[in-house]
Design a protein around this nucleic acid. Structure first.
Length: 393
RNA sequence: GCAGGGGUGGUCGAGUGGUUAAUGGCACCGGGCUGUAAACCCGGCGGGUUCACACCCUACGUAGGUUCGAAUCCUACCCCCUGCA
């Protein structure tokens, strides 16, 4: 009954870059992949139909343990059949464990060995999140990929602080693994799929490597995480304030050391350039709020760099956001119209920019996959960086 | 015509003798956003010279006046609103 939660197959390699397929209980995910972020069970401003349409065709999205736990609550989601059933999204979902909120809500929480005490940002009440609670919530959500509960430090954390944190994360990883296995065994997973032959598939669990930008600590964290054993491995704690070059160096050092037979996930990254650069360093999976958040805030990503739709220079510009882009927004609307919508505060502006940005990110990854498979990734990478750095006319 | 109220920077609106080129809001211009406390946040916003410090113009309906000093006080005029004729 319990088949492999997640099957990984490499289709092609070029340097450290890999093209492959992750098979989950909810379909195949071609990698390298970008996963749109849907924190609260919604990719902000984008309907699920749009996420499934050919111009986006997202194979997996994120959800967030901390946020869904506070609202509507894990048991509400369970009562509604798990997150897929609740939201109407049939494809794969990865849930973050709440570990990032240990970082992003640092003013509202206190970390101890046992877990993290949060002051809810919603109503101020005290909440306690631990590896066990995180696993229980993620079982109730029924996501296809569960993240271990970790502590995420600021990028410039000192060696001492990063060491202490990595050790805590390692202990939490083991507790996550133990509680996760119990929950699977007890059938607590709300995302199981029933078919004629019975229940198929189980949740997968990913471990997270920490250690800030200290390479020796990253290696140690990786070794301890692999020792526990996970279905996939993530690099956490990057793009949180450190220099970009340092981020690249850290990925370049760690990713190739990660188990080759498992998917590698760089959490929270990044810009389109970051995606290409980190694929080149051996990463398979990415997620980032940037396409949707920046879209809501008026910034479009294009093949020639970023474009701020608020700029007066677009007032009567009849061109689409990105001329080569085949997305439904670019096929239909001008910069002039999008600027007008944004300036007028119309919610459609945020919807359309978010859609286009996701299309750009997802299409970039499609091209990356294709390039790796055809052995042209090095050239693709070179040209992509030149083009996106050339500036929007 | 009489009585009362009022005319401030793109706009609305504070300010009623002295750090006032003039508080705020909006509009406008620009920037930021990386496992989402974000449809948010930050900066600029009379003109000119300057990399900058700084300096010089022009401004609170118009024109005069009082004063060391006026958006603020006085006089006249113009315009708007309300009420009475």
């Amino acid at each position: 009954m319990t088949e492999t939660a997640l099957d990984w197959q490499t289709l092609a390699r070029e340097g450290e870059a890999r093209a492959g397929v992750i098979r989950t209980r909810r379909g195949a995910i071609e990698t390298p992949v970008f996963m749109p972020v849907g924190t609260l069970g919604s990719v902000k401003g984008v309907r699920f139909e749009a996420l499934e349409a050919p111009d986006l065709d997202a194979s997996i999205i994120l959800g967030n343990t901390y946020h869904l736990w506070l609202r509507p609550g894990a048991e509400v989601v369970r009562a509604c059949g798990g997150l897929h059933e609740f939201t109407g999204w049939p494809r794969a979902i990865l849930t973050d464990s709440g570990g990032f909120q240990v970082f992003s809500l640092s003013d509202l929480r206190r970390v101890s060995e046992n877990g993290v005490e949060f002051r809810s940002h919603v109503d101020g009440r005290l909440c306690f999140l631990s590896p066990e609670v995180s696993m229980e919530v993620q079982a109730a959500l029924g996501s296809d990929i569960v993240m271990a509960f970790d502590e995420c430090l600021p990028g410039r954390a000192t060696h001492d602080a990063a060491r202490a944190s990595l050790e805590l994360t390692a202990r939490w990883a083991r507790r996550s693994r133990v509680r996760f296995d119990e929950l699977q065994r007890d059938g607590a997973d709300a995302g199981q799929i029933q078919n004629a032959d019975g229940v198929t598939g189980r949740q997968a669990l990913f471990g997270i490597v920490q250690g800030a930008t200290h390479l020796d600590l990253r290696r140690e964290s990786l070794a301890r995480t692999v020792e526990i054993g996970f279905d996939g491995y993530a690099i956490g704690g990057l793009s949180v304030g450190e220099e970009k070059e340092v981020m690249y160096e850290t990925v370049e050092h760690v990713a190739p050391l990660m188990p080759a037979e498992r998917p590698r996930y760089l959490m929270g990254v990044g810009t389109p350039e970051d995606l290409v650069e980190c694929v080149a360093r051996g990463v398979d999976m990415f997620d980032c709020v940037m396409p949707t958040r920046n879209g809501r805030n008026g910034q479009a990503f294009t093949s020639r760099g970023r474009l701020n739709i608020k700029n007066s220079r677009w007032t009567t510009d009849a061109r689409p956001l990105d001329e080569p882009c085949a997305c439904s927004v670019c096929r239909r609307h001008s910069r002039a119209y999008l600027r007008h919508l944004f300036m007028a505060g119309e919610m459609l502006a945020a919807v359309l920019l978010s859609h286009h940005n996701l299309a750009f990110f997802l299409d970039t990854m499609r091209r990356v996959r294709q390039a790796i498979r055809s052995g042209e990734f090095a050239r693709f990478r070179r040209e992509f960086l030149v083009r996106t750095g050339s500036g929007v006319e």
